[in-house]
C-alpha cells in the first residue's frame, strides 16, 4: 500500500495562491475610479452580454476579473443577499461593508477548504453622500479585503495601471476626466504596446450621486465615444 506524499500546508497554500494569481493575471483589466459626484467602473470587455461590471443595489456596484462563471456566481449571490436584506429590513440597511464581509468569508472558505480556489478578484463599491464617505473594497481570491481610496485596478497588468493612475488621479475630478483617464491608462499600460480603445471595446458604468434611489447607470457605446472624442 502506497503512502500519500506529505505536502506542507505552506506549500499547499502557496500553490493555490499562485494558481489563482495566474488565472487572474491572464484576463484584461478593470479599473474603478472615484470622482467628485460618483464612482466610475471601466472594463476592457468587448462583450455586450457577459458583464464584468454590474449593479448590486441602490448605491452598490460590483466589478470583477478572472473566471466568468465564478465571479458571476458571486455576483448573483450578492444581488440575492442585498435584495433579501433590503426586503427584510429596509433599503437603507443594505451596506457595502456587510456585503464585502460576506464575500470575504465565502472566498476565504473556498480558498482553504476546496482543492481549487476561485480565480477571481472583485471590487464592491458603495456610494456615500460625498467623496469622503464613498467606500471601495477590493477582495482577492483568498478572502483578503482591502479598503481602497481613489482608484483600483484589477487583472492583467494591474500594477502598471495603478502606477499610472497614481500620477494623474486627483480628488474631486469630473466623470469626464475620470473616463478619459481610465481609457488612457488602459490603452497605454495594459499591454506592452499602445492601443486605441473605443466604446465598442469597453464596458463602462457609474454610481452617480446625482441620481435618486438606483444610482447605477451603464454608459452606452455612443455615449462613451462622445466622451472620448472630447
Amino acid at each position: 500500500m502506497s503512502m500519500p506524499f506529505y505536502v506542507s500546508p505552506e506549500q499547499v497554500m502557496k500553490d493555490k495562491a499562485d494558481f489563482a494569481r495566474k488565472g487572474i493575471a491572464r484576463g484584461r483589466s478593470v479599473v474603478v475610479i472615484q470622482y467628485g459626484s460618483g464612482i466610475l467602473f471601466v472594463a476592457e470587455n468587448p462583450s455586450r452580454a457577459l458583464h464584468k461590471i454590474s449593479e448590486i443595489y441602490d448605491r452598490i456596484g460590483f466589478a470583477a476579473v478572472g473566471k466568468y462563471n465564478e465571479f458571476e456566481n458571486l455576483r448573483v449571490a450578492g444581488v440575492r443577499l442585498a435584495d433579501l436584506r433590503g426586503y427584510a429590513y429596509d433599503r437603507t440597511d443594505v451596506t457595502g461593508r456587510s456585503l464585502a464581509n460576506a464575500y470575504a468569508q465565502t472566498l476565504g472558505t473556498i480558498f482553504t477548504e476546496t482543492a481549487k480556489p476561485y480565480e477571481v478578484e472583485i471590487v464592491v463599491a458603495e456610494l456615500g453622500v460625498d467623496e469622503a464617505t464613498d467606500q471601495i473594497y477590493r477582495l482577492t481570491f483568498d478572502g483578503s479585503v482591502a479598503d481602497e481610496h481613489g482608484y483600483v485596478a484589477m487583472g492583467g497588468s494591474a500594477e502598471a495601471i495603478e502606477g499610472a493612475l497614481s500620477e494623474v488621479w486627483k480628488s474631486g475630478q469630473s466623470e469626464f476626466e475620470s473616463l478619459t483617464q481610465a481609457v488612457h491608462v488602459l490603452s497605454h499600460h495594459a499591454l506592452d504596446e499602445v492601443r486605441t480603445l473605443s466604446g465598442r471595446d469597453l464596458e463602462v458604468a457609474v454610481l452617480d450621486r446625482n441620481r435618486s434611489r438606483r444610482t447605477f447607470r451603464r454608459l452606452e457605446t455612443a455615449e462613451i465615444d462622445r466622451v472620448l472624442a472630447g
Binding site: G78, R80, L81, L84, A102
Partner: peptide
C-alpha cells in the same frame, strides 16, 4: 423570519 436578514452568502451561492 427575523433570521432571514442574516442568511449567509453560501446559501445565496
Amino acid at each position: 423570519p427575523s433570521s432571514s436578514g442574516g442568511v449567509d452568502l453560501n446559501i445565496a451561492l
